[in-house]
Design a protein around this nucleic acid. Structure first.
Lengths: 218, 218
DNA sequence: GAATATTTTTAGGTAAACCTAAATTTTATT
DNA sequence: AATAAAATTTAGGTTTACCTAAAAATATTC
């Protein structure tokens, strides 16, 4: 069965929203896609006819089993390409999202199989997100928000989420990246900032804004 | 300036036809693209407005300087991806065209620059066609048809054109690939077949059909 | 050079994916 | 529970890239 680039994008976005919210509304999806609600409704009807989503007018919706499988394939392609861009072409993690967004729609299954093998079947992409294997299985690693981690416990950064801003500049300045070992010494309730300690560096203060986007393994 | 995938395909195809015929007709382009003449006419007007082609109704047309530059960029992307698919992912040369056809439309310039560097700035793709450098320059290697090569002169295969058939099976059987050293011993006018000789192998006969698609350096 | 054939363009239509504005349904508030 | 607010859908457009069928221009043939 053939899916257009648009359909793939809708499915993928439904998948991501569903992962966080459990269920998806027309408006939430429109927001995520930068489209208008009316356009979304139109597409929802198409996706339903293709049995990719469970949808009743005016109600929230979710992916069917089939929809989920397709979503995972797209996510897999996206994250494998991100991995390629960072580890083979030398891009840095915050530059690759938009490019992978285009590459994820290249359709050859054989291509993705070979790419995966070529990259050594990585389990996590450069942002720390898990890459579905060819059966759609995700390697689960608990991602704890740095904001919630116990005090004075050494943890390892395993994911960084960029929210469109320039957070990576700041992280580069602090020299925080995936794999960094650090502990939280203090939490300042006043502004949610944290004092953190990394190996061989003096304690530093990071804002709650940044900390919110840093995830780690305890 | 932005070009749609369709526009890029038209420009690229005009480039290829122009390379062979010198000039391009509506019908020839329609044939190459698998579209109808009326659709082509419509697009020609768009391309003219964007100053990519020189076009007068009912006349043959050709790329402008700008059009040529864009065409070379697309060709460059296509051939770099083909090189990647063969030399990094292990595809064989006859499998990569369609995949590269999709990948050539990924838009990031930075991506192509890095890909080129990663591949070692190759000058020829797996079919033996030259890869334009980032300024659009092509490394010219005379491609002589095996059918026209002088008798008993050792030559090196430098290009293979697949015409949609299964020629590669045959070539594999003869063990002919890019880089193969061989000489033509005899030409049989009756059916245009050739007797060829390769190192460490007994003489073999290949049909004119195949020979037509083998190119070499003298 | 007139008649015929071929090529190309124009006219009018379709499907996908978007849009705005208005209508409808659901949810929240008093 | 009635009304106001918010969310969603419907109705009616637009653009891109296709299409067929008919008309117009160019080429070919006798």
């Amino acid at each position: 069965m053939y899916f257009s680039e648009s359909e793939e994008n809708y499915i993928k976005e439904i998948y991501h929203i569903q992962a966080v919210q459990g269920t998806v509304s027309t408006n939430a999806l429109a927001g995520a896609l930068g489209a208008r609600a009316a356009s979304v409704t139109e597409m929802l009807k198409k996706l339903q006819k293709k049995k990719l989503i469970n949808y009743k007018p005016y109600k929230n919706f979710s992916l069917t089993e089939l929809g989920n499988r397709i979503a995972l394939e797209v996510v897999r392609k996206h994250r494998l390409w991100e991995y390629f861009l960072v580890h083979k072409l030398g891009f840095s993690w915050h530059e690759v999202h938009d490019i992978a967004e285009e590459m994820e729609h290249v359709s050859s299954r054989e291509l993705i199989q070979r790419l995966d093998h070529y990259l050594g079947s990585p389990a996590f992409d450069p942002h720390g997100d898990p890459i579905p294997d060819k059966n759609g299985k995700l390697k689960a690693v608990k991602q704890n928000r740095l904001t919630d981690v116990p005090l004075r416990k050494w943890v390892i950064v395993n994911a960084l989420k960029e929210q469109g801003g320039n957070m990576h500049q700041l992280l580069k300045h602090y020299d925080i990246h995936i794999g960094t070992r650090l502990k939280v010494n203090k939490r300042f309730d006043f502004d949610s900032s944290l004092e953190i300690k990394m190996d061989k560096l003096p304690p530093a203060i990071i804002s709650g804004e940044v900390a919110k986007n840093i995830y780690c393994t305890i």
